[in-house]
């Protein structure tokens, strides 16, 4: 299985390559990618350097252009596709059928991946995108069990990539408007979720309040671990009871499942976190590299090492880890 690492800047790209990623994914500095954060992402000059660096080390660079082209503005997304192809992308990670159509028609030889934002959760959906646009890989939404994934792989010739570590979306990606409902900006329309411009942290009565566009998302006691003020991970009131009504601040960690994922035919493991630092990228990539190598060398004897789990736990949001939908403890 390939290891796919996030990079929000050139330093992170280099850290990922040096730590053993097979491919790095990145985005341009605009709303064409789903991590459109202030001060993050690559200028074209950075990308040229990054692609050269990856090439020197025999690694690939994937371009995420995975938001939805907004009405009247498709030209911006087409320009991003043009830039990615010009800069030597090994693959484009796309979600929008209209953008996929453009990329396929304009660049018939370009390798295309269907982004997790493309919301293809079963073989019919994936096969439609293969027949229509020749996608060669799909990144699966984080809603499927290992059994679902195994069944799906049997029914498609498209390579399957799954998330192995990082902050967790509890909602099916590409179909969540919670952020624009609260702030106006969503992953689909602006490439952001719970955007920083709408976030305010305020100390009050010895607690810290997290507000999103004025809405109280959560209150934290002084030493309580905090999460991003991603609205699905806040604490709310349902029938008079305060709770993480949707999801606790957790990170996905599929370390213990690597041999099983390899056995069912998963082709690539993706790490979430283009918004995280090079320090995160270096440590998480190195850990998953060691785990993947161990899982490949002796799958039957494979066991996650305590120090791998320790490293990943340190970087996990809310300092918790879960196997998420893969095993569905809540099923």
């Amino acid at each position: 299985m390939e290891l796919i690492a996030p990079a929000g800047n050139l330093a992170a790209l280099k850290a990922a390559v040096l730590a053993g990623a097979d491919a790095v994914y990145l985005g341009l500095k605009n709303a064409t990618n789903a991590r459109n954060f202030a001060g993050l992402n690559f200028t074209e000059a950075d990308i040229a350097q990054g692609v050269a660096f990856a090439r020197q080390h025999g690694r690939q660079v994937l371009f995420a252009i995975n938001t939805f082209a907004q009405p009247g503005r498709a030209q911006e997304w087409r320009a991003a596709v043009d830039a990615a192809c010009r800069l030597g992308a090994d693959a484009l990670i796309l979600a929008d059928p209209g953008v996929l159509a453009y990329a396929r028609q304009r660049y018939p030889q370009q390798r295309l991946h269907l982004s997790v934002q493309g919301s293809a959760t079963h073989a019919d959906a994936i096969e439609l995108m293969r027949e229509q646009f020749g996608i060669q890989r799909v990144v699966l939404p984080r809603v499927l069990t290992v059994t679902d994934i195994a069944r799906l792989i049997e029914k498609t010739t498209v390579e399957v990539e799954v998330f192995g570590f990082g902050s967790l979306c509890v909602m099916a990606e590409g179909r969540c408007l919670l952020s624009s409902f609260a702030t106006g900006d969503s992953p689909n329309n602006r490439g952001v979720c719970s955007p920083a411009h709408a976030v305010r942290w305020q100390p009050r009565d010895g607690q810290m309040e997290a507000r999103l566009n004025g809405l109280l998302i959560d209150r934290y006691a002084p030493d309580e671990p905090a999460g991003y003020p991603t609205l699905c991970k806040g604490r709310f009131m349902v029938e008079g009871r305060r709770d993480h009504a949707l999801e606790e601040p957790t990170s996905l960690n599929a370390l213990s499942l690597l041999p099983r994922l390899a056995a069912i035919g998963v082709r690539a493991i993706k790490i979430e976190g283009r918004q995280r630092s090079p320090a995160y990228v270096a440590q998480v990539v190195a850990t998953l590299r060691a785990a993947l190598d161990a899982a490949q060398a002796a799958p039957a004897r494979y066991q996650p090492q305590p120090d791998w789990q320790h490293t990943l736990a340190r970087h996990a949001e809310g300092s918790q880890t879960t196997q998420g939908a893969f095993d569905r403890p809540w099923k």
Binding site: A74, A101, S119
Partner: peptide, 12 residues
């Protein structure tokens, strides 16, 4: 929920 945000997608 099919995310038809622009003309190219609608034509498709």
């Amino acid at each position: 929920h099919l995310n038809a945000y622009h003309g190219d997608t609608l034509r498709w």
